[in-house]
Design a protein around this nucleic acid. Structure first.
Length: 856
RNA sequence: GGGCGAGUGGCGGAACGGCAGACGCGCCAGCUUUAGGAGCUGGUGUCGCAAGACGUGCGAGUUCGAAUCUCGCCUCGCCCACCA
């Protein structure tokens, strides 16, 4: 028996290599090396445990980073922790652990777990959001925004989670039932003074994606989120006839509409219940009912205002306005389907051409006036009719009758503008970003309140405003900062007198809006970043993460960069040039992985059993990386077998010629080759001889085809197909070795296989590279380049179809003429049999791909 | 309700106008092993002894040719959800 090769034992080398790489600073990104490539993965929240989803999200980008590095780029792949936020505080309340301690323990555990992946992170650039060395600069950024007029304080009705006792951002309230994004509790409304960032100022520029290579769905979501609508604002004068109200003294009511062409059809108006004019326009006899409705709307908004499918209801307030085009009086209603925060908080009701207005008019018997109709058709008021293309024309619209609806939009707006009753207007769904949180575990907002001078920014030299450590957490969740005398006591920067410190902290999305900037110079103590390093690395070349951040983190980060650019702090427009989303790994139950569901898959056991490389490779192999799917370790044996096979094939004594033992007794064909392969008419020995004869050439061809395919697949993040091609190369190597053929070609193939495998399975590649006597480190070795001549096939197999069905195959040399191929195809016995006497009327040829003989 | 995406063997998936099911899991048979495991070889869409026929959610269409393009329907997933 030949001595068995040393068994694959990842435990024997994985840790060794990771320590060596770390010691040699192999992945350290330097600011002075040309060819920078900034590859960023969304920094993880400090939940406490690294689960399989973290591995999935990290392994793919690491493959790309490693390939780029071998291709000559100087790659920076930094890592850090999103460590502020609610769970740390909840842990403090529930278990009496200080958030800082909880967070630090989690980071230490997670960092150690992350390091078992063997990913090429530059840990020397680690950024931790809750570390004063970081949040000092978060506070500094707040002050820049404040000075630029982009941070302001305003009274606002805010969404309040009664369970977590926190104000929620608009995008943290989910679904029609308006539930808290963290705890699923229905939220209520409360009026509070809040800090905002003026993201709306950048609404238009944020709609410009021209510099971005991002997934289309993400761009669509951001576009919808910003929600730009073009239309007009139109003033409806309040009718003086209105009795019992002080309507005579009231300014016109301004509405926003995207359909100014339908103004002739406005037969009523609706104000949001919160509209400031409601109280003044309500007549005495309607007052009781109106006030009841307003109160109900307010109360309902405190319960589940939008929970169920609701009838669209409202109340007439007694006053009338005047349609500026028809001069007809129109009744003014209030209804909660009109939102106070969008447009002007008031609409003109055009029931013939808006489904909501139609419902409302039906319910309250309001007149329905059709003013747009398909060209040549009878006007109909059966249902709301809402199109406005060139095919619709205005009817019953005075001088505009007969004009196309699309043209009338501009014409009517202009007509109203001339008379001072309207103007073109743009409206957006996006609201300013509410950044203040009434919580402890966040970056304190660096503002103090002086009785004499009002709110004042903390001088930059006094940053950071540190979170006090000695705090008591109440189960109610009220921020302990509000009762901490030492924290509250401050000095007015203007007169040096006593002041009270702001107790709100910042939304953690503020941290994540700039952490990637800090990675460029994370240890800088004099500034948020070094401008040289910033110029060198930014913008990020490739950003990867989950699609769930489509409109939160990604939009805020873009806003930050544009705002800081306009302040002169940055010299580029976009933070992330290319974005790719990995799919989500779900629990085995097809649900999102969460501790409470108990379906979190822990990779540590798999790593202990198979080694990190196998786990990495398996995650890359299970399917398209952008797709994700439910977790199952079924099949991990397959990639482990593959690595075992590579391990055995790559042992130095398995190489060329005499260095490897013959498969059996020398001079004798192996016994098992003597028999005939059933049904083939050939013996196994025939196949073997053929393999030996053509073996080295075809193995070289496969090797170079694999280089080309894997390079392309890695670049496209198609890791699953890349791995399958590596498996095919290994299978081909196995056959060549079985045939004892072509030592040099085998050596080339094995070296190539290891090089191509290195990004995906870095430890085993390094180990085998060393065992084969190649110089350390494989991860600094040049990436193989495919030789197109060697990769080219010298015989092409052409499928031959008859009427689209496969009937035969031709073997032809490249360059065989179409005439010759047609002759060969028609001469085929099988083709003739299927022609069945019919004549071939046509022969379709796709060069190099296929021949189709058509008989009808 | 609106938008986006996806439906392919027992399973994960490949092919994305041109040989459907690459690669792997699982399963079956054989070899090897004291045994277990591992390893190796072959097979494995469905029906059929075979020749062959049929097969990519359902139904139409375009095309010499459709898993792929178009239209309608069904199912699932994600996002948005009274935004005038």
């Amino acid at each position: 028996m030949t001595p068995r090769a040393e068994r694959l034992d990842p435990a024997a080398y994985e840790v060794k290599w990771r320590e060596r790489w770390e010691r040699d600073e192999l992945y350290r990104a330097r600011d002075d090396v040309p060819g920078p490539f900034y590859l960023l993965t969304m920094y993880p929240y400090t939940s406490g445990d690294v689960h399989i989803g973290h591995w999935y999200a990290s392994t793919g980008p690491d493959v790309v980073a490693r390939m780029h590095r071998m291709q000559g780029a100087h790659v920076m792949m930094p890592m850090g922790f999103d460590s502020f936020g609610l769970p740390a505080e909840n842990a403090a309340i529930d278990r009496g652990v200080h958030p800082a301690d909880w967070t630090k323990a989690n980071i230490d555990r997670m960092r150690a777990q992350f390091q078992t992946m063997g990913a090429s992170w530059d840990w020397s650039r680690e950024v931790i959001a809750s570390d004063p060395s970081f949040y000092r600069w978060t506070q500094w950024l707040f002050l820049q925004f404040y000075r630029a007029g982009l941070a302001y304080k305003a009274m606002a009705p805010v969404d309040w989670c009664p369970k977590d006792q926190v104000v929620l951002a608009r995008e943290q309230v989910l679904g029609p039932e308006r539930r808290c994004w963290r705890c699923d509790t229905p939220v209520i409304k409360r009026d509070l003074e809040q800090w905002f960032f003026r993201i709306t100022k950048y609404a238009d520029e944020l709609l410009d994606f021209s510099q971005l290579d991002w997934p289309e769905p993400i761009l669509l979501m951001q576009t919808n989120w910003i929600g730009r609508s073009e239309g007009a604002e139109i003033d409806f004068p309040v009718a003086p006839v209105t009795a019992g109200s002080d309507a005579g003294a009231v300014e016109p009511i301004r509405v926003f509409t995207t359909r100014p062409d339908t103004t002739f059809g406005a037969t009523f108006m609706v104000l949001a219940p919160e509209h400031p004019l409601v109280a003044r326009l309500t007549t005495d006899e309607r007052r009781a009912e109106v006030e009841a409705y307003v109160a109900a709307a307010r109360r309902q908004s405190e319960i589940d205002r939008l929970a169920a499918e609701r009838e669209r209801d409202g109340v007439f307030i007694g006053s009338y306005a005047v349609n500026p085009l028809t001069d007809e009086p129109v009744p003014i209603w209030i209804a909660d389907y009109v939102l106070p925060g969008y447009g002007t908080g008031a609409i003109m009701g055009v029931p013939a051409h808006d489904a909501r207005d139609f419902d409302f008019a039906q319910r309250y018997d309001l007149p329905i006036e059709v003013v747009v109709a398909p060209r040549g058709a009878e006007p109909s008021s059966d249902a709301a009719f809402t199109a406005h293309t060139d095919d619709e024309v205005l009817v019953n619209s005075g001088e505009f009758t007969g004009m196309s609806a699309s043209a009338a939009i501009g014409a009517i707006t202009a007509h109203l503008a001339e008379r001072g009753l309207g103007a073109p207007a743009v409206s957006y769904k996006i609201r300013d970003w509410l950044v203040s949180r009434q919580r402890y575990w966040g970056a304190p907002i660096p503002i103090v309140y002086c009785d004499v001078h009002g709110p004042q920014p903390v001088p930059e030299a006094e940053l950071p405003v540190l979170l006090p450590r000695d705090v008591d957490f109440a189960a109610t969740g009220v921020s302990p900062l509000q009762s901490h005398d030492g924290f509250l006591a401050a000095t007015c920067p203007v007169d040096g007198g006593p002041a009270r410190r702001e107790t709100d902290t910042m939304d953690t999305f503020v941290d994540s809006s700039w952490y990637y900037l800090r990675y460029t110079s994370p240890q800088n103590e004099d500034a948020a970043w070094d401008s040289e390093a910033m110029r060198h690395w930014m913008p990020v070349n490739l950003y990867t993460g989950g699609a769930e951040h489509a409109v939160l983190h990604l939009l805020y980060s873009r806003f930050f960069v544009k705002a800081l650019r306009d302040m002169g702090h940055l010299a580029f427009d976009e933070p992330f040039l290319a974005l790719r989303n990995q799919g989500q790994i779900l629990g085995a139950d097809h649900q999102r992985m969460s501790k409470s569901r108990g379906n979190v898959a822990n990779p540590d056991d798999l790593v202990a059993q198979y080694g990190a490389d196998t786990v990495r490779l398996f995650l890359l192999f299970i399917g398209p990386w952008d797709q994700g799917g439910p977790w199952s370790a079924t099949g991990i044996e397959g990639v482990h077998r593959f690595l075992t096979r590579v391990w055995n094939q790559a042992q130095p004594d398995r190489g060329a010629g005499e260095r490897r033992p013959a498969p059996s007794v020398p001079g004798m064909p192996p016994r098992s080759l003597a028999g005939e392969i059933p049904g083939s008419g050939k013996t196994a020995a025939d196949d073997l001889l053929a393999a030996i004869a053509g073996g080295s050439r075809s193995l070289r061809r496969i090797t170079h085809q694999t280089i080309a395919a894997v390079t392309q697949d890695y670049g496209l993040l198609h890791f699953n197909t890349a791995i399958s091609k590596l498996m095919e190369l290994s299978n081909a190597i196995g056959e060549a070795m079985e045939g004892n053929a072509g030592g040099e070609a085998v050596d080339e193939a094995v070296d190539t296989l290891i090089l191509l495998l290195a990004p995906a399975a870095p430890h085993i590649a390094e180990e085998l590279w060393e065992r084969r006597g190649r110089p350390y480190s494989i991860h600094l070795h040049a990436w193989p380049v495919a030789d197109a001549d060697l990769a080219a096939e010298d015989l092409i197999e052409l499928p031959v179809q008859v009427n689209g069905k496969l009937r035969d195959r031709l073997q032809v040399a490249p360059g065989t003429s179409a005439e010759e191929i047609e002759r060969l195809a028609l001469a085929s016995e099988r083709v003739q049999a299927y022609l069945d006497g019919h004549e071939a009327v046509r022969v379709v040829q796709i060069p190099g791909r296929l021949v189709n003989v058509v008989t009808r």
